[in-house]
Nucleic acid binder design. Structure first.
Ligand SMILES: [Mn+2]
Ligand SMILES: [Mn+2]
Ligand SMILES: [Zn+2]
Ligand SMILES: [Zn+2]
Lengths: 149, 149
DNA sequence: TATCAAATGAAATTTAATATCACTACCTGC
DNA sequence: GCAGGTAGTGATATTAAATTTCATTTGATA
């Protein structure tokens, strides 16, 4: 999906909600789409300052929430203080393994786990809207290796 | 496992760490074991005040962390502001479905999902220490039902 | 272009969690 | 049992993410 199309979809979403399409919202969405990986609002704000020093902190907070509502971002936690966001467009659904030592994040996806989740939800007549699977532990670099002796 | 044994295990854990077993720590652990479900530190503190008005807020925070370290509690988030804790003793490992409308929490466990998680982790040579699977959506009461027409 | 409600940005506020620090009490050795 | 050192406690202050407030600005519509 082209950046152009995403911006248009966002504009449409905003219009449909009876809201206003502002320069700030566009700039923030662009910056968010440019940033890769899992960003905090703070990090996004810092990036934005370079090109758009006028944009306020509150607006970034407000807009990332709007982007999330529009379905263009996913909220993540990773057991840190600040929440992180990740773009959904151009990114297949996946879950995360977080190394508690080096903080490295490994992305994985398991259709079989996804399927079992819907099975469980069905059993409880629960309608899944989102889910979050986070595995914490030690990555292959940080885990203790077998002694050579 | 008897309360008595849990307290003893906690005492042992504390001793092994070279720490001190205090009245407060025992009182907080007892209150935590008595509380069922998923409690916040605030909620736990409020319960404690009834019998132990002297115990400070900071101590409850510090001790719940100690209880967690001792492996007697699990930390949960549920996308709320405050973290929640759940006892591990006398509770089989399980994951959670959270209704975003009524905030009801449904516990479930799926050995098959657990197994698939270890499979994925093995593939990445990742050593699992803990994990968290949270499904958000609408419970059977809150989800929209089929129209009668 | 005028209108006006929505949006913005700076600052204040909220709130969970942590840090500080004088005082207390647990533990060890005697 | 008693004393000494020292980890733990509790009141308070602080931190930091996130939200709210509000005067001012700006986008959409006519
Ligand atoms: Mn990711
Ligand atoms: Mn539970
Ligand atoms: Zn690592
Ligand atoms: Zn519900």
């Amino acid at each position: 999906m082209e950046i152009r199309e995403i911006l248009e979809a966002f504009r449409q979403y905003i219009k449909d909600k009876g809201l206003r399409y502002t320069k700030q919202r566009e700039a923030i969405l662009k910056a968010f789409l440019r940033a890769d990986g899992h960003v905090t609002v703070e990090e996004l704000y810092m990036q934005l300052r370079k090109k758009h020093p006028g944009i306020g902190f509150s607006t970034v907070y407000r807009t990332i929430k709007l982007i999330e509502d529009a379905g263009l971002a996913t909220r993540l936690s990773f057991d840190e203080r600040a929440e992180r966001f990740e773009k959904t467009v151009g990114t297949d659904h996946h879950d995360h393994m977080v190394c508690i030592r080096c903080r490295r994040v490994i992305e994985f996806e398991s259709p079989r786990i996804e399927r079992l989740q819907t099975e469980v939800a069905d059993k409880y007549r629960f309608q899944i809207l989102s889910h979050r699977l986070e595995i914490f532990g030690l990555c292959n670099i940080c885990r203790p290796h077998k002694s050579l002796v």
